[in-house]
Amino acid sequence: MSAFLHAIGTAVPHHDVHQAFIGWARQQLTGAREAALFDRMAGRAGIAHRWSVLPQTSDPTGPDGFYAADRWPGTAARMDIYAQAAPALAIRAVDDLAGKVPLNGITHLVVASCTGFVAPGIDQIIAARLDLLPSTERVLIGFMGCYAAVAALRTARHIVRSEPAARVLVITVELSTLHLQATGDLEALLAMLQFGDGAAAALVTGASGGFDLGQPFATTLPESAELIRWTVTDHGFAMHLSGEVPGRIAAALADPAFALAATGGMSPAAVDGWAVHAGGRSILEAVERSLDLPDDSLSASRAVLSDNGNMSSSTLMFVLARLLDGPRIDQGVALAFGPGLAAEGFRFASAA
């Protein structure tokens, strides 16, 4: 029994905060050497835009903004915005999906989000706003980070393979810009430089169409748990993204056992569709170097990074959406990384 990813709808907020953040972050650095390094890294990040649910009428870090210096917001204030803005952005992604495929008869809802908490859960809020049947089975995947899209699509695949008539709506929604931290630490500022807000929605069923979702794979790198952390604090969720991450990813991809699991024994050169989580320029370069990929193999990932930055779990969905709109793929591999340090993915191919 196969499971098929038919289409993906996407949505981002209307407020581009990338340049405002760069200006604010540079002011937090007191040393000339650190400021120069930040400028160089920001210029090489490959990011042109990052979008935020914070009000478009102001600079979020300005005197009247959400992050005004004299009243740095606590976690409760950030979660208040999440409770309202996350379902709204998710619904916009569903509306985009509905313009591509019929969404009648949804039997299961799988939602992934790691940038907020609310109860009743965001899955229940979304189900109610979509007027799904009360009998709709729901799964909420929380706090897994950037590879949560893999977990969500893998869950949908398992559901469809066990219940062939299932119609599974998969949603990822992340509001990363709710978690700006007051810090002058260069590594922390470079990590925050990557992240933006976005949502995606997909339909997975047993009927042929779109991408045939193949075998999943996963691994956790040894002695790497401290490299990516997402800590709940009194002032939002603090991200720690070590500069060692690209090197550790490169080492993992060079392991023949992992390469075998990821490609199913194929040479990486035989893969004609790479959906790699756009976690940052250096991560994409590490993947390219380790697998010796042609220069244009990760063009979809680079385009998503440029247009949106890293939207945590939604990022991979945006990459897959671009590939769905492109040429036929006979041998595809989706790959994402996140806290753990873990690497997860699945193989896929265009439906016959």
Rank of each mutant, 00 (worst) to 15 (best):
T219D: 08
G46T: 03
D234F: 00
A165E: 14
A7M: 09
F217W: 15
A90C: 08
G74W: 00
G9K: 11
A7G: 07
Y67N: 07
G142S: 11
L178Q: 05
E226G: 14
I171A: 04
L190F: 03
T183I: 03
L5T: 07
G184I: 03
H108K: 04
A303N: 07
R71K: 14
V111C: 05
L5W: 09
V333A: 12
I47S: 12
V319S: 01
N104T: 13
A254W: 11
S135A: 15
A148C: 11
A149Q: 10
V168T: 14
R328Q: 14
E344Y: 02
G116A: 06
I106K: 01
P120Q: 14
R248S: 07
K100R: 15
I141W: 04
A349P: 12
G309R: 03
A336F: 08
L213M: 07
L133K: 13
W274Q: 08
M239A: 12
T30K: 15
T136L: 04
L153Q: 02
Q19P: 01
T155W: 00
P294W: 04
G247E: 10
L193I: 07
R26P: 01
V111A: 02
P164R: 11
A352Y: 07
S208E: 15
L180C: 06
L103M: 05
F237T: 01
I283H: 02
L190Q: 08
G279E: 02
S162E: 11
S301H: 02
G236W: 00
L189Q: 11
R33L: 09
Q84E: 14
A36H: 14
A128N: 15
A93G: 10
F143D: 02
H277W: 02
H108C: 03
D212S: 04
T220V: 15
A88T: 15
H240T: 14
